[in-house]
Every structure is written in C-alpha cells, then in structure tokens.
C-alpha cells in the first residue's frame, strides 16, 4: 500500500474572512437543502407506512347464515370473511366469531379474542365456559370473566336479523388498552 496518499481532511493554509463567511453560508445552504430533500422523501414515506392507521373501514354488516342454520341455545363458531380485506389477504381475510342463538329471534355474537392478549378462546359446551389456551383466561357463557387474567368481558359484536339472515357488524380485533 502506498503510504504517501495525501491527507485531504483539513486545509493547510489560513482562510480569509470572506472565505469563512462564504463557507458558513454554503454550510447552512447544504444542510438546509439536505433537510428539504429528506422531508420531500420522508413525509410521503412515513405517510405510506402509517397509512393503515388512518384507513377507515366503513361499518358493514356481514351475513353469518340463515336464522334456521342455528339451533336455539347452541353456541357455535362461525367463519366471517372480512368484506373490506385486501385482495391478497387469502385465508387471513377470514375471522372466527362465537355466535349463540339465545331465542327464536335473538342472537349474541362474541369476539373470539381473549381480552387479555387476544388469543382465540374456545367454547366448552359441557361447562358452558369460554377458555383461553394462552394464559388461562376463563369466561362465563355471557362473556363475563370467570377466572384468570382477562381485564374485561369478551367483546360483543352487534347482531341483527334481516330478511331471515343473521348479520353482524364488521369484525375487528378488539384492542384492550390501559389508558
């Protein structure tokens, strides 16, 4: 390796006040322009990345099935396909909800997400309990917490019967917040 490569890291001669002043201006200009360029690229970039936060999904009622498909008193898991999912969502466009036919005309739909940390709760028919496999959360048939760490009852979705079909309001993952 040639060790005689010139060191260009600093200027050997003294600079005039004009040179210093010009340099100060050029420094500010360059830093300012770099900041401007960063903003031109950065603002849309950040906007693109955080866009899902602002993507408002209109409330849509999703059909779960005909009223006659469900037995009175039975709680069953029903698959819902998210109507506003992206075309490449594949199986992830699906969600599961727990639906109970309480009477001839009324239904209750529970979110399948445990309010502790979102794991899928299972309905245990014999015990009439929802149980969570992750941290042992247990809920009664009305969704109230029976045991374990869940801070809230199971979230209920709106249900309505329209033209003989059972429909629920759009399915989202309910987020339990602290403050």
């Amino acid at each position: 390796m040639n060790e005689n490569v010139t060191d260009h890291s600093c200027l050997a001669r003294l600079e005039t006040p004009e040179e210093l002043s010009r340099r100060g201006f050029l420094e500010k200009l360059s830093i300012g322009l770099a900041g401007f360029c960063a903003a031109v690229v950065g603002v849309p970039l950040i906007g693109f990345v955080i866009a899902p936060l602002f993507r408002k999904v209109p409330e849509q009622w999703v059909t779960l099935g005909k009223v006659g498909d469900f037995q009175v008193g039975k709680t069953v898991s029903v698959t819902v396909v998210n109507p506003s999912s992206l075309p490449w969502a594949g199986v992830t466009a699906k969600s599961g909800v727990w639906l109970r036919r309480d009477s001839e005309t009324s239904f209750t739909a529970f979110s399948a997400n445990c309010t502790h940390l979102g794991c899928p709760v299972r309905w245990i028919e014999g015990a009439e309990l929802f149980m969570c496999p992750c941290h042992g959360g247990v809920y009664y048939k009305d969704g109230k917490v029976a045991a374990g760490p869940p801070p809230l009852p199971l979230i209920r979705y709106g249900v309505r019967v329209e033209k003989g079909e059972v429909k629920i309001s759009s399915v989202v993952v309910p987020i339990t917040t602290t403050l």
Partner: peptide, 23 residues
C-alpha cells in the same frame, strides 16, 4: 395496545389495519 395513550394506534400499526389481513 397497553402502551398508554398511543396503544390503539400502535396495535393497528402492527396489524396493518383493524384486523389481520393482507397488510
């Protein structure tokens, strides 16, 4: 979601929306 004040936004940022999906 348990992060105070911004938890909900953070959760939706992670999911890429209000639920799991294409994003």
């Amino acid at each position: 979601g348990r992060v105070p004040l911004i938890g909900n936004a953070l959760a939706h940022f992670i999911l890429g929306g209000e639920t799991i999906g294409g994003a």
